[in-house]
Design a protein around this nucleic acid. Structure first.
Lengths: 340, 340
DNA sequence: TTGAAAGCGCTAACAA
DNA sequence: TTGTTAGCGCTTTCAA
């Protein structure tokens, strides 16, 4: 049952013996202390190499009360996180940034309350040094609880209600939507509609606001607004509504690529050519954007960089628990393809 | 610098004091030993609850030499893993299965040799109890090395060359391709082409073989084969080649949705209607499949279940290092949409 | 600059 | 059935 099987790894003790010094000295070398004589340093390094010594994390953790582990909690159920390269790119960015630290990345799906409890337990018990939370739902109490427990926490995506002191990383949804809409206007489009995302989610709200600001004070204004839920079907329905409301609509900014793809279908069904009759822009620059016909012009988010920033903030929080960290809002970019 | 800050968690010792028993007894209760008197059991349980005790994993690990952690290694660079819901669903399946065990899931990207070394080190050093490897490249030595080091390893996806004894989980690519092709045949299609994936990857090979078997002995046979690389552009090119080779082609099975999407574009450009003139089937049932126009009929893989099986095999390997585990090949399903 | 020694919190072997 | 005890491998004072 013990089933250890594997040969025992060399310990500090053995390295010390090999190098002819004490455990303390080896420990100092391993942890990069400066108060070690060049001679001892060299002897220890050689012994380490010779023995193939690697520190035992559990032992270290036991005494330092650090775990050198950060937890990525995906509070999903919102399928979006998992579709699209979003999740993967984010993880990649986080890993990238963490690879320069001793921190390991742990992953946990936690949508139910029970799973959230488990996260809190892990944190409280010192099994993780910090938490990255992504894909939060409306007023999820998890980040607040974690922060209250004194745990370093950072959020992927702006929380809908302000969580004083908990930093977040987000794409500049507002500016992205604004620039997409302005682009349409510059192309000479004058009846620019939008298909919004859910208005109880930050990206939904911000992207609508960006559209509004772009058209503020412009002739025609921002009146052609149809509600969607980020999903393709809702985009199709919304586009039909828009066409009914104003048959002369000549452009539409959709708050997601899926909705834009839906709009494309509705437009084709209505006999409108894209982009000739109606220009379409999506948001996310997802895989879908590249594979619709015509390919979607879309607002791209620097997802991988968002991951890196998340990790950077978290590391800062762990290292300097006191300091106030500002949210990071990263610029988006309009990727022009065929649809607008 | 110590920055512990957090209040110390209660220890076994304190629970023992509170319950009026010894540490040993508390340990037995915590670890579910049966040799504990009902009275002691109750007292300990109460003390645990009262104090909010949670075992310190580091301390436990130190003595048991188990880490209760499994590592998911994404040997990426092949972007596919990250696009599509693939990665997310897989992780979800793995998490799901592990949630019934004390095992935590760790994640690591490792494409470079240096990163592979780190994986081996983690394993050798007992920091992880087992490894799930996905997205392996051709003849990556990592699984062999890990297995040789005595570490439990399971593979996501059939390795291209047999790794004696290392179990894997895969979708039944061959059967999926075969049934898609047969479906086309049943629909009365008689000039059925295929666009293959790279022939140095198991899915590429298997899906071509499935196509071949479906048409073996049938009139026309399996002669309309064009090479692709799973990417959309290659699918578009391949479709043009096929049209040139046989303008009367009336169906095409593409080994990926992206290639199928490319084929769709080429067909539209050539003035062919889908599915009227040419039926198209893709593979993966990815997001793209749902958003092309017409929507793609596609072969779906039970990705989440693959994740669960992966975890199941790994747990079995960890618990019973000796036993031989067979590969698990899961059935695919043809999802019929508009394109065929 | 170094060594010695005291734990970190836990499991498991042994004795009672 | 229970208590006692010896470590697990490491970091970190404290003295030297």
């Amino acid at each position: 049952m013990t089933s250890t099987g594997r040969a025992r790894r060399p310990t500090l003790e053995q390295v010390a013996a090999e190098a002819g010094v004490s455990r303390g000295t080896v420990s100092r070398v391993v942890n990069g202390s400066l108060e070690v004589s060049p001679r001892a340093l060299k002897a220890v390094q050689e012994a380490i190499r010779k023995l193939g010594y690697v520190p035992n994390q559990a032992a270290r953790s036991l005494v330092t009360r650090r775990s050198d582990t950060v937890l990525l909690v995906v509070s999903e159920s919102e399928a979006r996180v998992f579709s699209e390269p979003f999740f993967g790119s984010l993880v990649r960015g986080i890993s990238q940034e963490l690879s320069a630290t001793p921190l390991q990345l742990n992953l946990m799906m936690a949508s139910t309350a029970r799973q959230h409890d488990r996260v809190e337990q892990l944190v409280r018990n010192g099994h993780v040094d910090g938490v990255v939370l992504i894909s939060l739902h409306g007023d999820d109490p998890l980040p607040r609880n974690l922060a209250a427990a004194g745990s370093p926490v950072v959020l992927g995506g702006r929380p809908i209600s302000d969580l004083g002191g908990v930093p977040y990383v987000d794409a500049d949804n507002l500016a992205g939507a604004k620039s997409a809409t302005e682009y349409l206007h510059r192309q000479g489009r004058r009846r620019i509609a939008t298909i919004t995302g859910p208005q109880d989610m930050a990206p939904g709200i911000d992207r609508l606001e960006g559209y509004r600001r772009a058209l503020r004070g412009r002739r025609g204004g921002a009146r052609l607004v149809a509600q969607g839920d980020f999903g393709q079907a809702s985009g199709e329905v919304a586009m039909r509504e828009l066409l009914a409301a104003d048959p002369a609509v000549d452009a539409v900014f959709a708050a997601s690529d899926l909705m834009a793809a839906g709009a494309l279908r509705a437009l084709r069904a209505a006999g409108r050519r894209v982009p000739d009759d109606v220009a379409v822009i999506g948001f996310d620059d997802s895989a879908v954007a590249q594979h619709t016909d015509p390919a979607l012009t879309s607002v791209s988010q620097p997802v991988q960089r968002m991951g890196r920033e998340l990790a950077r903030l978290l590391v800062a929080r762990i290292r300097e628990p006191g300091t106030v960290l500002d949210p990071v809002v990263l610029p988006t970019e309009l990727v022009v393809r065929e649809s607008a």
